[in-house]
């Protein structure tokens, strides 16, 4: 098991390094890394520290956030089809971002968009609290999340629909495709506290999710506080997914696939899946972000478009495997 985490960590480290070394400024690897750490070449150091490093760091953080949130939600809902967008935080964050673009807030100051997106995610937590009530199980949470996602989606469409400014509408559409290009260390700084807090909350859910393997009654009767577990989950997912959406837009498929791919490798254990899926998600996003730069260096292929495209054959493979197994 720890061997799996080690292997995944090495994979993430390798992809992180590769991400640092890929870009339009074609510089050999060693001088690049040298410039990153020592600052001996002002131009190259600038590229490494202000362009490549934030992009790689955000890939790592966004991927880990999606992988971890997906694993936590799947564990809590006892359903392998749950994904991070389910409780509405990403939809609400996207709405916040869209409003920031539409109102000009995003153009007025550099962190306007991510801050508005984070505000949207936090508002979604309050709404979920209100809708799902203090008690109740997984079903009320799903229903509240579906209602919230639908509302956020409708509001986003409304903004697009009524947008008097075609450039804003265009910008919104491109932003919603999800990307890690042209982000700065400011973006890293704004997302990091939410990522750390949310990550700590979600990683602490292990014992509760483990007990939930046998259902809510079995978990509650073995000493799990179901209400507290649910709020830690909602807060953790909203913080991580809200921050991820705020800095990268919508990146689909990763939160669903990372736990799926790794479940067998951790012996099905939802607790052990949490750190593994965080690393797996980070590896997926880093790899996809490398791929968009290699596949179409001059066309700004969006990361979210690529993950969605890669997702389809993955699910076809899953379907075929299930059919072979007769499920």
């Amino acid at each position: 098991m720890s061997r799996l985490l080690l292997a995944l960590s090495l994979l993430v480290a390798a992809l992180f390094t590769a991400s640092l070394l890929i870009g339009p400024a074609r510089v050999p690897p060693l001088p690049s890394l040298h410039a990153l750490f020592t600052g001996n070449d002002p131009m190259l150091t600038l590229v490494m520290r202000e362009v490549r490093l934030p992009r790689a760091l955000l890939g790592l953080m966004v991927g880990a956030a999606l992988g971890l949130s997906g694993a936590a939600l799947q564990g809590f809902l006892r359903n392998p089809l749950a994904e991070p967008g389910l409780i509405g935080a990403s939809g609400a964050a996207a709405l916040g971002a869209v409003l920031a673009i539409q109102t000009g807030l995003a153009a007025a100051f550099p962190l306007g968009l991510p801050l508005a997106a984070l505000a949207g995610a936090m508002a979604s937590v309050a709404l979920i609290l209100l809708l799902a009530g203090p008690r109740g199980g997984a079903l009320t949470l799903i229903l509240a999340g579906v209602a919230l996602s639908a509302l956020a989606g409708a509001a986003t469409s409304l903004v697009l629909n009524l947008s008097p400014n075609p450039f804003a509408a265009n910008e919104i559409i491109f932003w919603m495709m999800g990307s890690l290009a042209d982000r700065s260390l400011l973006h890293v700084g704004i997302a990091l506290p939410f990522m750390i807090a949310g990550g700590a909350l979600l990683l602490s859910l292990g014992p509760g999710l483990q007990a939930l393997t046998l259902g809510e009654d079995a978990a509650a009767s073995s000493g799990i506080r179901m209400g507290a577990l649910r709020w830690r989950l909602v807060l953790g997912v909203a913080a991580m997914v809200g921050a991820a959406t705020a800095v990268a837009g919508a990146i689909g498929f990763v939160g669903l696939a990372a736990p799926h791919v790794l479940r067998r490798a951790v012996g099905g254990s939802p607790a052990r899946l949490l750190p593994a899926s965080a690393l797996g998600g980070a590896a997926l996003v880093l790899a996809a972000d490398i791929a968009v730069r290699l596949l179409m260096p001059d066309r700004d292929l969006k990361l979210g478009v690529l993950t969605a495209l890669v997702g389809t054959p993955f699910f076809l493979h899953l379907i075929l495997r299930m059919r072979r197994e007769g499920a």
Binding site: R78, N79, P207, G208, Q210, A211, L212, T213, L214, G215, D217, A218, A219, S221, S222, G223, I224, R263, R264, G267, G268, S269, P270
Partner: peptide, 26 residues
């Protein structure tokens, strides 16, 4: 200890791991 009526094992965990499932309490 409680053995609920619904026999619903959510994840493909090995039998020995399921039998060893405690809770936070123990």
């Amino acid at each position: 200890a409680f053995l609920p009526q619904t026999r619903d094992i959510a994840w493909p965990m090995p039998v020995a791991d399921i039998v060893a499932l405690g809770g936070v309490a123990q």
